[in-house]
Design a protein around this nucleic acid. Structure first.
Length: 551
RNA sequence: GGUCCGAUAGCUCAGUCGGUAGAGCAAGUGGCUUUUAACCACUGGGUCGCAGGUUCGAGUCCUGCUCGGAUCACCA
């Protein structure tokens, strides 16, 4: 570790490095916390110990959530809650009921749990959180509490448990050893016998009742937002933590469903020499050693179909794509897409499978097929199928539809009205360069898009596997590119070569995961379902003008 | 890029007609010690986003700017 003096010399010689106090502004709050940290150091030695071993009373590691979910403990909590429910406002549960339950809790012996203080310690109670659940702990001044010193030997200091307790701040981490009991008011708690200090919070905690009002801080400092959601006493809708639990469940259920159906997960390049496979503007970067331009992929599509050529009959990738376009409530520069391909399937089969897949995922992540979204109820139990033309006429009966204006009319009249899950089929072939034509109509592509709440959630088609026709479609795209359409698709010569080896008939789909999660979590903005959404660089408003030049 | 809204204590927010800068929480001190959303009492804490203007006087009115949000445009 650098000495302070040397640190200052280094910092002063490199102008662009801010001082610690410039990053973490010092004020009365941080000074108070520093004072208590120093006082704790006197008592406990190291204030940043390396570990805390939790017990396995619940059958697995005793996180707070695990202890509270542990059957016999949950049963006791349920029983006391039933008793408390019959009591008047200030009335206490009868001692004999409480004592009987406490006897049952004592049977579990000693537990060791740890977590963050959800309030400043007030009196001799405080709640700890493991990020999801809270559990109260009780520090008995009269009975005596030992402090576990962080000297590497866990030396017990019988005198100073209470003194250390008084130095705890809102947000600190502690570990406690003790026994479970029910308090006079009927709450499950841990009676602390040994207290160990684990880590300090040097900054104030978010407002417990109101949360963090500033959306920018919520998104930029997601850790702070998540702390807030673990402290929240009451809240409407899902906490931030719960949103990302739903996201995780959505993704894991999609993976499980696909794997159960025989799909193999693969990873294809994120850095690609050509940005193709979708109509979008790419991010560019440069490979120094090779001295070539590379693009962050806009879609894995053409790589996945190369794998179908190679014999992966069912293949999927669930990962990030990057598009250098505008940011909006439904667009983030990097977003997560599930793409998969199934040999010998056509667009109809893919729509059927997509329905099953999404139903399974919605059921597992949201708990049912009816999902409340912004005052509407979205019903995933039935997916409508309607042609693009029909959908326009449904909402604009007098529209005069031509090949040239059909997508424009669709975007304007139909798309915003497609609230319930709806597959739009019969796309113009001209805007579907990777899609097979309808055998009955050469101007129509065998393609669908799934719309929910006016948002495109999925896009799939019967995959074009005739290499010569694919070549011609690319040439057509390149011509449009010459004509100024920056998003027209780029010819991929190696992909033509791959198709020339023969690709079986196949259907493929891309599903926008972020948008699906928005629907399942009742979030209006894609930024609320991405942990660290793209933000403008943080501006330091104060002092230090003329810094941060990128040489 | 256009339009609208916002920025006041560490956090969440009030601030009337332009007249001494406010509350709750958080923090400090003392009390209490089986409490219950945030116990009781007292204390400290402000570049009112930045710059300029009008005015005897600006958190408040005007202009410009910065940052953010919403929305439109853009984005099959």
């Amino acid at each position: 570790m650098l000495s302070r003096g040397r640190l200052t010399i280094i910092r002063d010689s490199i102008m662009s490095i801010p001082a610690f106090d410039e990053i973490i502004e010092q004020n009365d709050q941080t000074e108070a916390r520093l004072a208590s940290l120093n006082a704790l150091r006197e008592l406990t030695g190291n204030v940043y110990p390396n570990k805390f071993a939790r017990t396995m009373v619940s059958g697995s590691e005793d996180t707070i959530t695990a202890i509270k979910a542990f059957g016999p403990v949950a049963k006791v909590v349920e029983e006391i809650a039933a008793v408390v429910a019959t009591l008047a406002e200030r009335e206490r549960p009868p001692a004999e009921v409480k004592d009987a339950l406490n006897e049952r809790l004592r049977a579990f012996g000693i537990v060791r749990i740890s977590g963050r203080l959800t309030t400043p310690p007030r009196g001799n109670f405080v709640h700890l959180t493991d990020g999801i659940s809270k559990l109260q702990v009780y520090c008995d001044k009269k009975g005596g509490v030992a402090l576990v010193k962080n000297d590497g030997l866990d030396t017990l200091d019988a005198e100073n448990g209470w003194n250390a307790w008084k130095l705890l701040d809102h947000g600190d981490f502690i570990g406690v050893e003790g026994y479970l009991f029910i308090t006079n008011t009927g709450e499950l708690s841990v009676h602390i016998e040994k207290l160990q200090f684990l880590a300090k919070s040097m900054l104030p905690m978010p407002d417990k009742m109101h949360g963090i009002a500033d959306a920018e801080i919520r998104q930029r400092q997601r850790y702070y937002d998540l702390i807030g959601s673990s402290l929240a006493v009451e809240h409407e809708g899902l906490t931030t933590r719960e949103v990302f639990e739903v996201r995780a469940k959505t993704i894991s259920s999609l993976r499980r469903f696909l794997e159960d159906a025989g799909y193999v997960e693969v990873e294809t390049p994120m850095l690609t020499p050509k940005a193709t496979g979708a109509a979008a503007k790419p991010f560019e970067t440069h490979h120094n050693a090779l001295d070539i331009k590379l693009y962050a992929r806009i879609a894995p599509e053409l790589y996945l179909k190369r794998l179908v050529v190679g014999g992966f009959e069912k293949v999927y990738e669930l990962n990030r794509n990057f598009r250098n376009e505008g940011i909006s409530y439904k667009h983030n520069p990097e977003f997560t897409m599930l793409e998969f391909y199934c040999a010998y399937m056509d667009v109809e089969g893919m729509m059927d499978f997509c329905e099953e897949l999404m139903r399974d995922s919605v059921r597992k992540a949201a708990g049912g097929l009816q999902v409340k979204y912004e005052g509407k109820e979205i019903d995933f139990s039935k997916f409508e199928r309607i042609t693009m033309r029909e959908s326009i006429l449904k909402y604009a009966p007098d529209a005069e539809i031509t090949d040239a204006n059909i997508t424009e009319l669709f975007d304007e009249h139909a798309e915003p009205n497609l609230i319930q899950p709806t597959f739009i089929v019969d796309f113009p072939k001209s805007i579907s360069p990777l899609s097979k034509a309808d055998p009955k109509d050469p101007n129509i592509a065998e393609r669908f898009e799934l719309f929910i709440n006016g948002m495109e959630v999925a896009n799939g088609f019967s995959e074009l596997n005739d290499p010569r026709e694919q070549y011609e479609r690319f040439v057509d795209q390149m011509a449009q590119r010459e004509g100024g359409d920056e998003e027209a698709m780029v010819l991929d010569e190696d992909y033509i070569r791959a198709l020339s080896y023969g690709m079986p008939p196949a259907a493929g789909i891309g599903i926008g995961i972020d948008r699906l999660v928005m629907l399942l979590t009742n979030k209006h903005s894609i930024r609320d379902v991405i942990l660290f959404p793209h933000m403008r660089p943080e501006k330091k408003d104060s002092s230090d003008a003329a810094e941060t030049k990128e040489d």
